[in-house]
Design a protein around this nucleic acid. Structure first.
Lengths: 263, 263
DNA sequence: GCTTTAAGTTAGACGGATCTAATTAGATGC
DNA sequence: GCATCTAATTAGATCCGTCTAACTTAAAGC
């Protein structure tokens, strides 16, 4: 649990109380229970815990009110909830119902710093004048129809969501240049200024594409690679700007043991 | 907890076991306990629960191994963890330690759809040729040094993180055009094609700026507004493209009641 | 004003996840 | 081969958040 804070469950109660009042209702045990999908007998002790934290005024058998503290915290949570949902729906194009569910969790756990940054990013998208929203929507539709960028459908990676024991090592940085001759990799992203990047993209150097190092000249320039069945020659700088997912791991299959066994 | 799935805590155990094996160690109770910052006596029952779910092979007093199922799930979690962290650090510029903490939670709860979309967005950023990373970094630094975009420092909104009972209603859409004469609002974002947006930005129409409707001509065109102390005249279409945070709520201060009272 | 009903509370139980303290199993030393 | 030490497990307790079932209050009807 978050240190020095109330539990996720209590935050939920607080948020529900806030929303009920905000909507002009009085916050009754019954309504709170209904919203949280919980029995009334679970609400009473929760209210007691909230009162003990000084977040609500709780008088037995009368409606609940928020203290100043309670309002502050509730507003904070609701603000996060609504922002996260909005961010996911309007920028990332996550379906509303799903965004709602995700927001219900993130509102409790997202650090203030991350929240702040997402807000700034969101503002940036709207003010940078690059039509990022529209362009992304276009890109996404394209990807979705071809399935090209979907990690779970591309043939060499029935990864991550469903299938295999593989994972992509997002964090580590490995460039194309680090591959040994004969070694294969999948492209993670391209880290190059506009012109070079465009040239690479035009050649088909795109995320999730498999790429194989054929050979490098002694001084590292030029480099011959294989990509989508054909060969290409790249300059050293270009190869350096192509980020590869590092080798995927394969954990050894455990041999079926004996002895006391659970399951 | 997530229906049909194991608890967050169990996912943590599974992830730790996966990582230990991945690093070439054997997964012993002692090491697992150390990583999760938990006593050894908490690990044993957790292992039993994992074995019951068919995710590990657990033989009393011998080291733990993952089943195929276990590997799949663990890899999925680790993949999410690393992606989320990478996304936050390299794109949103969240400090690494904080991103790590956030990733620890999101890995458990993020829906597959949201994950998928974030991945696609991330790829988009790298391939759209707009240098979004650099431009955002520039924007962010600028914002940070002026404090302009920080919701917590701008004078009319000691909001959200720290101060007040206010919140911004991100989800609802209210345009400048909907304000009545004399009514004030804060700009959420601008939803207009390039040229118009640029004109508005040049005039100082930026997120988090307070804006006041002065008056609108009978047919709604032109519109006179006040912004940063000076007056501006806008066309109807322009005003329509400026999204305002809807009025912020103020919950009535509860009068101090009597009766049975907790806290 | 008494009865009925709905809302709220209490009592008691349970499961998950943790702890401390005590115990057992295996490996190591001599 | 016995003593010792360390790793692992069990026993027993606690806390949070939930439940069902029983009880209490207060309001509504008549």
């Amino acid at each position: 649990m978050r240190i020095g804070m109330i539990s996720e469950s209590l935050e939920d109660y607080l948020e529900i109380i806030y929303n009920l009042i905000d909507e002009g209702n009085i916050a009754r045990v019954k309504d709170i229970a209904a919203r949280k999908n919980v029995s009334m007998s679970s609400v009473t002790p929760a209210l007691r815990r909230l009162a003990k934290e000084g977040l609500i005024k709780y008088t037995l058998r009368s409606d609940v009110e928020l203290t100043g503290e309670g309002k502050k915290l509730a507003a904070r949570i609701v603000d996060r909830h609504e922002f996260v949902k909005h961010f996911l729906v309007s920028l990332m194009k996550v379906p509303e119902a799903i965004a709602e569910r995700d927001a219900c969790i993130f509102e409790h756990y997202m650090s203030p710093e991350t929240f702040r940054r997402l807000v700034v990013f969101f503002e940036f998208v709207d003010t940078c004048g690059m039509d990022i929203r529209d362009r992304f929507e276009q890109y996404r539709r394209n990807m979705e129809s071809t399935g090209a960028s979907d990690p779970c459908t591309s043939p060499d990676c029935r990864n991550t969501e469903m299938g295999s024991r593989h994972r992509r090592r997002w964090g580590q940085v490995k460039t194309l240049l680090m591959l040994k001759p004969g070694e294969k990799g999948r492209i993670a992203r391209i880290q190059a200024p506009g012109a070079i990047r465009q040239r690479l993209i035009d050649m088909g150097v795109l995320p999730n594409v498999e790429i194989e190092m054929k050979r490098a000249a002694p001084l590292g320039d030029p480099i011959e690679i294989k990509l989508r069945g054909y060969h290409l020659s790249l300059r050293k700088e270009e190869a350096e700007s192509i980020i590869i997912f590092p080798a995927q791991i394969e954990i050894r299959e455990p041999d079926s043991g004996s002895g006391e066994y659970y399951g």
